[in-house]
């Protein structure tokens, strides 16, 4: 069976639009809300959804996702429950799902068993923000055996590393827009023409841009550089504001993002 991420990027390319990737932390404020949020985001035009597995010490996150992680942990959200959530979702939707998780929450489980569980539940990709290329091999091998994409990241500081990372990438390449942690930004110092020039040359899979994309305007602005855009903190902020009632406002927000992604060439 072909990976859902590949199918979705092919579909977007055929329709000449950008893929919209959105993020929520699983279990924030509870897993039932996360389930409703995923379905609402899909109905409103999200193409791929990243589910954040909460971690006690998320070093790559800004305050918004840190707080979401804390709320989810306060509810004792555990990895096995995230897998159960994915299984429930798979009875209702075929939207591509990625887990975004710090490596320790994976490592304490048997790596091979973890990726087998990903396949059984219906997870399509796994993003490990604290595992660079040099440490990726054991995870890649186990992931690919189960048909799960290990998703790589490149950053504006990657330069000569871009080529080797891009050669290993599968599913899509996650392009970090700028220095710093996750969260909204008002401006970017990155030279996108040069950054994406290097990526385009080296990358054989689709690539998506994330970190700091907070609304439709930035989707239009940044989307033109990539095959997809990733919106995280701005969605999580709405979840923080509306809690259990967040699926409607998040849906409305995602609809605006999706329209911007459709209109971006």
């Amino acid at each position: 069976m072909k990976n859902r991420i590949d199918l979705r990027f092919e579909e977007c390319a055929a329709q000449g639009r950008k893929a919209l990737i959105t993020f929520v932390t699983a279990g924030d404020p509870d897993l039932d809300t996360t389930e409703a949020l995923v379905l609402s985001m899909e109905q409103n035009g999200a193409d791929i959804i990243e589910l954040g597995v909460p971690f006690s010490d998320p070093i790559a996150e800004g305050p918004v996702i840190q707080r979401a992680s804390q709320r989810a942990l306060a509810n004792h959200t555990r990895l096995e429950e995230v897998f159960a959530l994915v299984k429930r979702l798979r009875q209702k939707t075929e939207i591509p799902l990625c887990l975004m998780m710090y490596v320790n929450t994976l490592y304490v489980h048997d790596i091979a068993n973890f990726f087998a569980q990903c396949r059984q539940a219906g997870v399509d990709g796994v993003i490990l923000p604290d595992v660079p290329l040099e440490e990726h091999a054991p995870f890649d091998e186990a992931a690919r055996k189960e048909g799960v994409h290990p998703i790589y990241l490149v950053a504006p500081t990657s330069h000569e590393r871009i080529r080797s990372i891009a050669q290993n990438a599968s599913g899509f390449l996650y392009c970090v827009s700028s220095l710093g942690v996750t969260g909204k930004r008002s401006e970017y110092a990155t030279d996108f023409d040069s950054f994406f020039g290097e990526i385009k040359q080296a990358c054989t899979v689709p690539y998506a841009i994330g970190f700091g994309i907070s609304g439709p305007e930035q989707v239009r602005q940044m989307g033109r550089y990539a095959n997809g855009v990733i919106v995280g903190s701005a969605v999580v902020e709405l979840v923080e504001q509306y809690g259990k009632d967040s699926s409607k406002p998040v849906g409305e927000f995602v609809a605006k993002l999706a329209q911007a992604a459709r209109e971006t060439q």
């Binding site: 440490e135 990241l153 950053a155 500081t157 220095l179």
Partner: peptide, 12 residues
């Protein structure tokens, strides 16, 4: 041991 850090930091 090892180097388990975000890609942004790897260059540094």
């Amino acid at each position: 041991g090892g180097q388990f850090v975000p890609e942004t930091v790897m260059a540094a």
